[in-house]
Amino acid sequence: MIVSFYVNDRLVQLETPPERRLLDLLREDLHLTGVKEGCGEGECGACTVLLNGEPIHACLTLAIQLEGCHITTIEGLSAPGELDILQNAFAEELAIQCGFCTTGMILSAKALLLKQPDPDETMIREALSGNICRCSGYVQIVKAVKRAARELREAAV
């Protein structure tokens, strides 16, 4: 099938079997390798991207489901060579070790902050419950999201 959808606000048109995964379209066809495959079964969250602002698993999303959708990947958050407030908070708060969960984690946090600019710790932890990190114990990740929320609120004033 030919599917047209938006990736990071740019319209893409791809010829693909309908059962091909969004994960493979992004990684293999569009070379957006910031989205990672950690389990391929919707358990680890490393492949999280945003679909119309909501976090989804790219590994559980098929081409047939994509027509007209808006997909945001990690590459869509900032210009090349730059980091947005959230990405920067992850980097500076030591929320990144091996980094394999990072991009999905950031996008889950992004989805939270789009809806809830001032989340408390419980909200943050629940919003990240679909993203497994094996390196950290999540402490710095929660800190980074708090910091980003604060900086985003300050920037909005």
Binding site: I56, H57, S108, A127, G130
Partner: peptide, 9 residues
């Protein structure tokens, strides 16, 4: 049900 990612679909 599942995680936030699952619940959005």
């Amino acid at each position: 049900v599942g995680s936030p990612q699952i619940r959005s679909k």
